[in-house]
Amino acid sequence: MKFEKENQEDTTSMTMLTLIIIAFSGIGTFLTGYNLSALSGSVILLKKEFNLDDFWHMAIVSIGVGTAAVSALGGGYVCDLLGRRPVIMLSSAMFFIGSLILACAGAKKALLVGQIFVGFGAELEAHLASSSVDKGLTTSSAPPYMAEISPSYARGRLMAVTGACFAFGTSLSGIVAGIFSYYSWGWRCIFGVSAGPAILQFFGFLFLPESPRWLIKKERNGKAKVILEKLHGKHLAAKEYEDIMYSEVEHRRHLEQELNDSFQTGEPDRASYSAIFCYKIICWQVEASEKFYY
Rank of each mutant, 00 (worst) to 15 (best):
A110I: 01
S62M: 01
V118F: 00
I116P: 14
L112A: 14
Q264G: 04
D243Q: 10
G33C: 14
S152A: 14
V133W: 04
A195M: 04
K5S: 05
G41V: 13
Y246V: 03
F117T: 05
A72D: 02
S62V: 03
T265K: 14
M1S: 12
V61A: 09
R253I: 07
T138Y: 02
A103I: 11
S171A: 11
S130A: 11
S141D: 02
A238E: 15
I281Y: 00
H251F: 12
A224K: 14
S71L: 14
K48E: 11
K5D: 04
K239L: 09
A288N: 03
K48A: 05
A237D: 09
G114L: 03
S274M: 11
K217L: 05
M16F: 03
S132Q: 10
L111A: 06
E148K: 01
R84Y: 06
V78G: 08
G74M: 14
A105L: 09
G64E: 06
D134C: 05
R84M: 09
I22P: 00
V65R: 04
F205I: 04
D243Y: 15
H235P: 00
K109L: 14
S130E: 15
Y182R: 06
D80N: 12
R157A: 07
G74H: 13
H57C: 08
A195C: 12
A129Y: 08
C189P: 01
D269R: 09
S184L: 02
K223T: 10
A142T: 01
K230T: 08
E248K: 13
S132E: 10
K225S: 05
Y182K: 10
L82H: 11
R157D: 04
R213K: 12
G33N: 06
Q257W: 05
Y293M: 07
I20Q: 14
L259H: 12
R252M: 13
R252G: 13
G192M: 06
G163N: 03
G26S: 10
A72C: 05
S99H: 08
G66W: 01
G74C: 01
A160G: 02
I97L: 11
V43I: 13
G163V: 03
V286P: 12
H235N: 04
A38G: 03
A238C: 03
K218D: 15
K225R: 10
V70D: 08
V70I: 02
M1R: 10
R270A: 12
G28S: 15
F120R: 04
W56A: 02
G76K: 15
V193Y: 02
R84P: 06
S262I: 01
G106F: 00
V161H: 00
A68E: 03
S25D: 07
F96N: 01
